[in-house]
């Protein structure tokens, strides 16, 4: 045990924790609560049966799925993730693809707006100061608060979803880009000045690489928020997507499906974050 690396030890601990969680879960969901009928008079039991709350029957079936039930639900979904049986019956892969598509489009549009604008704001202290109050007011608004306005003006639920992703991704990217550009070290700019580097080349070869780590941090935060928001937005908007799937399965009272979808959301978010972590590492420099 002593010569194992920290990483290996952490891995072993994670597996043990996972096993423990499964065991607790299994135990908690299997245990039948021994509700005795002795505490009720026969009249009360009769009354309860009439109301649909049979004290004898109710305890037998817990609404929460056991890990085994979860496993079979997961297997069912994963064995055929892309089926499409009409509006309310699509495979989890398909739903995930809808959500990722919306996030992708909204996020890309946000990056296209935020990064060039952030550059301009960061380059000009005047614009930075002038726009600061607007950004500070708009930034803390929950993206879902825009939903009514989006639905009213755009009138299309899919595009409204994309708009909400756009509006929530734009601020961290904008602020980080502006900050990164504004705090490029003076020395590097002076080097570019003494070398008479033209503005466009200076922007791409000096300021962009210097600010890239900060910009990427903003992009990573934005992606995290976008993935949080899409689930809620799709619950509101409905139709397709992983968020809608969760809501639909809740209406069906199918908790295994809900839990499975939650896991999928978590894993996808982790994967997205890992991609941005890699990108961030690629542009980070050591001074």
């Amino acid at each position: 045990m002593k010569n194992l690396s920290l990483r290996a030890k952490a891995g072993i601990l994670s597996v043990l924790l996972f096993a423990l969680i499964l065991a607790v879960w299994q135990f908690a969901t299997l245990q039948k609560s021994s509700v005795t009928t002795a505490q009720y008079t026969p009249e009360q039991i009769e009354y309860m049966k009439l109301m649909g709350k049979d004290p004898g029957k109710q305890s037998e079936k817990s609404g929460f799925p056991t890990p085994v039930q979860m496993g079979s639900a997961a297997f069912k979904h994963l064995s055929d993730p892309f089926f499409d049986n009409g509006p309310n019956d699509k495979g989890i892969g398909l739903q995930l693809a809808y959500s990722l598509g919306r996030v992708g489009i909204g996020y890309l549009l946000a990056a296209l707006v935020a990064i060039p604008f952030g550059f301009l704001i960061g380059m000009s202290p005047l614009i930075y100061k002038a726009l600061d109050p607007f950004i500070q007011v708009l930034k803390p608004i929950s993206p879902l608060a825009w939903m009514p306005i989006a639905l009213y003006t755009i009138k299309d639920s899919t595009i409204s979803g994309i708009f909400v992703i756009f509006i929530c991704s734009v601020w961290p990217m904008l602020i980080n880009t502006a900050f990164g550009v504004a705090s490029v070290r003076r020395d590097w700019l002076n080097v570019a000045r003494t070398l008479e580097v033209p503005p466009l080349r200076r922007a791409f070869e000096v300021i962009l690489p210097a600010a890239a780590p900060t910009i990427l941090t903003g992009m990573r935060i934005s992606m995290g928020i976008a993935w949080l928001v899409i689930v809620a937005a799709e619950m509101l908007v409905g139709g397709t997507g992983i968020g809608y799937f969760v809501w639909n399965e809740w209406n069906n009272l199918s908790l295994p499906n809900v839990i499975f979808a939650i896991l999928v959301i978590g894993l996808t978010g982790m994967a997205l974050d890992a991609i941005f972590g890699r990108l961030q590492k690629a542009v980070t420099y050591v001074e």
């Binding site: 590097w188 002076n190 003494t194 008479e196 210097a210 420099y285």
Partner: peptide
């Protein structure tokens, strides 16, 4: 500033990337 005058900065000012 001009390319006719080269400057060596106090903190070397190399671009770390």
């Amino acid at each position: 500033p001009s390319l006719e005058r080269g400057v060596v900065f106090q903190g070397h000012a190399l671009m770390p990337w």
